[in-house]
Computed example of a mutant assay.
Amino acid sequence: MHMVAQVENAIVAAIKAAATGFSGLSQAGIESYGGQLDDETFEWVRTLPAIWVVFAGVPGKPARHGTARDKWLFPATFTVFCGQRNLADNKRLRQGDAKNPGVYALLQLVREALLGQDLGLPIEAFEPGPVRVTTSVVVNRDGVMVYASDWSTRWVETVEKAPAAPEGWLDRIGLQYFLKPGDAVADAADEITTRSLP
């Protein structure tokens, strides 16, 4: 499994573990992001509260790691969306009430699950990034708010070397140039390598 998928799955598992016993948030509401916020019918609102995780990309350019030519340090950012709805008022939507956690409590839950953790993977411990409101709307009289928090890490990837050429593979071609007809002595010669040699 690709490292991006491993990290994303580990983030989901860590948040689920941290949410055990967390009132008002079901385990099913914590999952990989599947484009919920792109649904213009707002069907996803019925699933709130929810936490969704997605790989947001590579910020900047990967860098060589050490002196090896086959090792690269890959930076990666993952975004965790925290969403909640509340019929009562905007303050309870953010801060929660006796029945439901507010969106701030969901953000805190994510921080507790990820801050400074490597989740048992060969990655650098997560560092927090920007937190921003992505959605603040009213849907069927429910106030809906979604925050996105970014989490950064890095890991080393080793580029696999190309397999050795099979037996009988043509490595080189030798060319000789005869400029005078009937002359048995080559006037020039070239050697062409058909693949990189070690």
Score class of each variant (00 low, 15 high):
P166A: 11
Q6F: 06
R141H: 12
F74I: 14
A88T: 12
A148P: 04
P198S: 12
E167A: 11
L115T: 05
P181S: 04
N90L: 12
N140Y: 13
G120N: 07
A113W: 00
L121H: 04
D70R: 02
P181G: 03
V137E: 13
A56N: 06
G120V: 00
L114M: 02
S26I: 07
A17F: 01
R195F: 15
T153C: 03
C82R: 03
A184N: 09
G143K: 12
D97A: 08
K61N: 11
S136T: 10
T41I: 07
T20Y: 06
G102D: 03
V7N: 02
F78M: 01
S26W: 09
W72K: 09
G116W: 03
P75V: 00
T158G: 11
D70E: 04
G66A: 08
A50K: 03
P62I: 03
D38C: 08
V156G: 07
D89C: 06
A164R: 13
E112H: 02
G29Y: 00
D38N: 14
S152I: 06
S136H: 15
V58A: 05
Y177P: 07
K16T: 06
G96S: 04
F55Q: 02
T134D: 10
W44M: 00
I123M: 03
N86S: 06
L48H: 05
S136G: 04
R92V: 10
K71Y: 09
D118C: 03
V110F: 00
P59I: 04
R92D: 14
A165P: 12
M1V: 11
D97Y: 10
L106M: 01
R132C: 04
A28D: 13
R141E: 14
K99H: 10
V138D: 10
R195K: 14
P128F: 04
A148Y: 07
E160G: 15
I51R: 02
A28H: 10
D183L: 03
E43K: 13
T47H: 11
P75M: 01
G96T: 04
A68G: 10
D150K: 00
D39I: 08
F74R: 08
A148I: 10
E124V: 05
G57M: 00
E124M: 04
D89N: 15
A5E: 08
V131M: 11
D39M: 10
L179C: 10
F22Y: 01
S136M: 13
T79E: 14
A50G: 06
S32R: 13
T134Y: 11
E167P: 15
P130T: 15
D38P: 06
P122F: 07
T135E: 15
Q117H: 01
A125S: 03
D89S: 08
Y104F: 14
I192T: 09
V133T: 15
G66R: 04
P166Q: 10
K91V: 14
P75A: 04
K61E: 14
V103F: 06
V103W: 02
S32A: 14
A56C: 05
G66F: 05
Q176R: 12
W72G: 06
E191K: 12
V110Q: 00
F55L: 00
T20G: 11
V58K: 03
T47P: 08
E167Q: 15
V80C: 01
A63H: 12
P122D: 12
G21T: 01
D89L: 03
L48R: 05
D118Y: 00
G21N: 02
V54N: 05
D39L: 09
V156Q: 08
